[in-house]
Amino acid sequence: MNLYQRLGYLALGSRLRRLSEAFLSEITYAYQQEGIEFDAAWFPVFYLLSQNEALTIKELSEQTEVSHPAASQLITNLKQKGLVMATPGIDDARKQLITFTGKGRALLQQVLPVWDAIMLSMDEISRNQPGCDAMLPAITAFEQALQQHDLYNHISKNLNKQLTPADK
């Protein structure tokens, strides 16, 4: 058992970050080996736009569960690379509709087979390693638990339980 495993929930954030970094490193390497210039950080926007003709920054922000400024910054980056464009909304010109450019659609066609290969590979890996098949449901359950319970309040309450009246 390594340090992170021994520390349990104390190291949860570190373990998840390490796992995410290792996973994204492998995904980035796969894109590079295929000669595809694609940043894994673009995935949520590319995926959502592949499923929708156009989306506003607000819709992208809500569906990816990131702040509006973070979504806006990502869209600005993608616009600078010529992968997406923003056009005024039909009903409300203040709302910018984000769509793929021709270059963005071409890149999407390149990454779609990689996404399929990632899904197949992860299914194979998780199916052949005991416990892995429970990972995604467990992450979902944990996300829901953290949304339903204010972790700080739990920590504070438990800190107060530990203090004796003389300590206060």
Score class of each variant (00 low, 15 high):
8 G>W: 01
9 Y>E: 03
10 L>K: 09
14 S>M: 07
16 L>C: 10
21 E>Y: 05
22 A>F: 04
24 L>V: 11
31 Y>A: 06
32 Q>Y: 05
33 Q>T: 12
35 G>D: 00
35 G>H: 02
37 E>V: 05
38 F>Q: 05
39 D>E: 14
43 F>T: 11
51 Q>V: 08
57 I>E: 01
57 I>R: 04
58 K>F: 12
59 E>S: 08
60 L>Y: 06
61 S>C: 08
71 A>N: 07
71 A>G: 10
73 Q>V: 08
74 L>N: 03
75 I>F: 02
79 K>P: 01
80 Q>M: 07
81 K>G: 04
88 P>D: 06
89 G>Q: 11
90 I>V: 15
92 D>S: 02
95 K>L: 10
107 L>T: 09
108 L>Y: 11
109 Q>W: 12
112 L>K: 08
119 M>I: 15
121 S>D: 04
124 E>T: 14
128 N>V: 00
135 M>L: 15
137 P>T: 05
140 T>Q: 13
143 E>T: 14
144 Q>A: 12
145 A>P: 00
145 A>H: 10
149 H>K: 13
149 H>I: 12
149 H>N: 12
150 D>H: 01
151 L>Q: 11
152 Y>F: 08
153 N>R: 02
158 N>S: 09
160 N>T: 09
162 Q>G: 07
163 L>D: 06
164 T>G: 03
168 K>A: 12
